[in-house]
Amino acid sequence: MIYRISETTSTNDDARSASYRHGDILWAERQTAGRGQRGHRWTSGEGMNLTFSLVWEPRFLAVQDQFSLLQAAALGLTDAFAGLGVDCRIKWTNDIYVADRKLVGILIEHTLSGARLARSVVGIGINVNQVDFDPSLPNPTSLAWETGREFDRGAVLERVACALNERYRQLEQGETDRLRADYRHRIYRLDKPQRFRVPATGEEFTGVIRDVAPSGELIVEHPDGRRIGYLFRQIEFIVGER
């Protein structure tokens, strides 16, 4: 069920409530404390975009396999946008890009039960009809920007929900090889030279993305031929900088 509210602090926080069950979506018109990855705030033009949280209860999934849940979410989104005529790529770990511009941000927060996942809240922000953005945002885009037309946000959300549910079904039925192959096919900048920064040291280098490991590490080939796996926060993309 889709629950629509006018304002909240964060849909991810609200969706932790036991009153929301598997498959429920909480869509807020405005979030006063929306969160993005790396502790960033998520900002959105009011009345123009989609900010919502989806509740999944993947009790069949071991904690060490949680990256496959993110794969399912990212693939569901790219499936939905392809149906709208927008070709997207998945920028590791969990942004959706059109060319070099960000269309979607994803933030997944888990609750555990022993060695398994109990509840996952998938927070998603989609730029739908916004075409004027805060200049401090480095590289935003939207469905409207990419297609030249406006969208019914409710219809977009329905399409996205269906696509997410289908990818979740694949995960639940153990089709992890298919999910991994599809995810790899849609990786942003796969097999192309890409500038990276190591936050811990400030080092910058050009490498080539060769794969993403089942556990979520980004496999980058360095100029000397070494292939190194990086975890989230160990490496970041340099996009749009001169």
Rank of each mutant, 00 (worst) to 15 (best):
M1G: 03
R4Y: 06
R4I: 10
R4E: 09
T11I: 11
D13C: 01
D13Y: 04
D14V: 14
A18Q: 06
S19N: 00
Y20W: 02
R21K: 07
D24L: 02
I25L: 12
L26N: 02
A28G: 10
R30T: 14
T43H: 04
S44A: 12
G47Q: 07
L50N: 12
L50T: 11
T51V: 13
V55M: 03
R59M: 00
R59Y: 00
L61E: 00
Q64E: 12
Q64G: 09
D65H: 15
Q66A: 03
L69C: 15
L69V: 13
A72H: 15
T78Y: 01
T78D: 08
V86I: 15
C88H: 03
V98L: 15
K102R: 04
H110D: 03
T111Q: 14
A115D: 14
R119D: 04
I126N: 13
I126Y: 11
V128T: 14
F133K: 01
L137G: 05
S142I: 04
L143H: 07
A144V: 06
E150K: 08
R153I: 08
G154K: 11
L157A: 10
E158W: 05
R159H: 04
C162V: 09
C162H: 08
A163I: 09
L164T: 07
E172R: 07
G174I: 12
R178E: 14
R180A: 15
D182R: 15
R184T: 04
R184L: 06
R186L: 12
L190P: 10
P193K: 01
Q194I: 02
R195C: 10
F196G: 05
A200T: 09
T201M: 13
G202S: 06
E204S: 01
G207T: 05
G207L: 02
V208Y: 01
R210Y: 00
P214S: 09
S215M: 11
E221T: 02
E221A: 05
H222N: 02
H222I: 01
H222V: 00
G225E: 06
G225K: 03
R226E: 13
R227A: 03
G229S: 10
E236G: 12
F237A: 01
E241Y: 06
